[in-house]
Design a protein around this nucleic acid. Structure first.
Lengths: 337, 337
DNA sequence: TTGAAAGCGCTAACAT
DNA sequence: ATGTTAGCGCTTTCAA
């Protein structure tokens, strides 16, 4: 059977209270006693049960991470840094892919609560804000990642999407592109990128119009589909700003199938700077999010929330960085199909 | 405070035993009682604590998944299907990236044991086999993924690496390549792929030599480095068989930098068929592993092990599928630098 | 410096 | 059909 604190206590000839104290490194006791107990724990190959200690009010030492899709390179790269940092801080992480599906969001949240995770990192955009409020009211630490917390009053860590969109657009404009289409997701972060686009666009004296935006969700397939839609327009744009790399790559693949030369006939810029951006050919001009720093930061924030109980709601914005590569080039005025 | 079984019992005017019975859907009771209790649970927004029930000997309903690196697309894609299937079966999964590092393997295993996971899925190749034996002796269900269980006596699910290597090689041979170099990892699966290579190679009357193999670990960077090493050889191979896509892509990138035209000057075939294979240009000829089926299977196996207690050790091999794309072409006898 | 004992939220006999 | 109660493995006063 499993070795328990009782076994250790018995073999060491002390009480379980004493053993507990050495486990938690609390209380005072003779050094020889501590040594003795430690030795026995070693011999018995004893490991305290997280379950049992959690039941007495201590932490479970596990975090819940909700992402839209762990197989999306952006999130798997993010998950990796989160995992590493969490382990450094003594926490494990349970990952859940929601597909931005309302049912799953609810189910996973509930599940993780039942498992008494010490805190949540939410990188999936929640439909039902009430669920999050509920978490907050229960005083379970909660941090938003990759998105703003809105009126929720918790801290959020994300990239400065507005600036990212602004810079991507400025880059395109500086290359002479005026007829640009944006392919965006239904997330707040995408909206901010669009605002950034708009700001840059209008500042340059052009007129932003609603129909410059196409909505979709993140996948290569959807990138292709969006391009098809774009090609049906009377006027073909000279550049496309995709709100993430997956979509951008779909566009590039679709373009190839249509014999559209990128970047000669059309420029493309993505967002995220995942592994795919450097792996595709031509390599993708994209807006980099500092994934590693963001991942680290988000666990540092949640850890401090867990320890301090003080839900100080900040908005932490990281600086995006435009990575100019080979899918963006000067506009050749190729505006007719 | 957190609402407990007592709160429910009190408000419903029954004992906690009754509440427990409705939670677990066991025992007999008047239907009206069940209804009443359920209603109260609803009203109180009550969720039973997994901690507490696990402490009484029930399952924690969580799985431990050990992979080398969750940010490697092969593993993140695998993790996604595992996660989905696990959730279908009522389990969450804690993911840990070991980097194939002995320290981390040990640490994470211990951590997960303390958290009383119901079972382990091990996709990381363990240095210290004893740790795994220990798990097995403790009767915690354990399944190997992506690798053979060796003498461990547990079930394993993997692709038929030997056949995969064989087919990749046959493909290359049929294109006229004879001077082939393999870039492999230090894992058993790579070894099997090499054996497959060897079988195909020798069957065709060629002589396999140790120096046809270069060892490295999975990353684009290492693929590049390996190519550098290869280019230092007196004779440049006409084809390279990389034991996974990441390495293959590194080779392709390196080749481009050296002005080597793929597939004209050199053919490359990878292994895994991750998203990167279709995303790179030219698209990568690679050996596909049926990631989705494997992921499903591995959780089905672990779930049945958890339920039946019977550690029936099978070796489940999935069929690989060669995906011929654009990095492999006929040999142009380009053997001198 | 050490130990006894109550309690964490739940399950599972065993009673009633 | 329902309730009483003894644990599960640990933490934490409070006493000794």
């Amino acid at each position: 059977m499993k070795v328990t604190i009782y076994d250790v206590a018995e073999k060491a000839g002390v009480s379980i209270a004493t053993v507990s104290k050495v486990i938690n490194n609390t209380g005072n006791m003779r050094d020889t006693t501590r040594q003795k107990v430690m030795k026995v724990m070693e011999e018995l190959n004893y490991f305290p049960s997280v379950m049992a200690s959690a039941l007495t009010g201590k932490k479970t030492q596990t975090l819940g991470l909700l992402v839209p899709d762990i197989s999306n390179p952006f999130f798997s790269e993010m998950a990796r840094t989160i995992e590493d940092r969490a382990h450094e801080r003594g926490l494990s992480v349970i990952m859940c892919s929601t597909d931005e599906d309302e049912e799953k969001e609810k189910k996973y949240l509930e599940l993780l609560r039942r498992k008494q995770v010490d805190g949540f990192i939410i990188a999936s955009s929640f439909h039902e804000k009430k669920l999050l409020e509920d978490i907050k009211n229960t005083r379970i630490p909660l941090v938003m990642l990759t998105q703003d917390a809105g009126s929720l009053g918790v801290t959020s860590v994300s990239v400065d999407d507005f600036t990212g969109g602004f810079e991507a657009t400025s880059h395109l404009l500086s290359l002479g592109h005026q007829n640009i289409v944006i392919i965006a997701e239904q997330r707040l972060s995408s909206k901010m990128r669009i605002y950034g686009f708009r700001e840059a666009y209008e500042t340059n004296g052009y007129k932003y119009q609603e129909d410059m935006v196409i909505q979709t969700t993140a996948s290569i397939e959807n990138g292709k589909k969006s391009l098809e839609e774009i090609l049906k327009k009377k006027e073909r744009p000279s550049a496309i700003f995709a709100c993430n790399d997956l979509i951008a790559i779909g566009v590039i693949q679709g373009a190839r199938e249509h014999g559209i030369n990128i970047p000669v006939d059309m420029s493309v810029v993505g967002f995220d700077n995942t592994i795919l951006a450097t792996t595709t050919v031509p390599s993708l001009t994209t807006v980099a999010q500092p994934i590693n720093e963001m991942g680290k930061k988000v666990v540092d924030v949640i850890v401090s929330n867990i320890n301090n109980e003080e839900p100080n709601a900040e908005r932490i914005l990281f600086k995006p960085k435009l990575m100019v590569r080979n899918t963006s080039g000067v506009c050749n005025n190729f505006t007719k199909a």
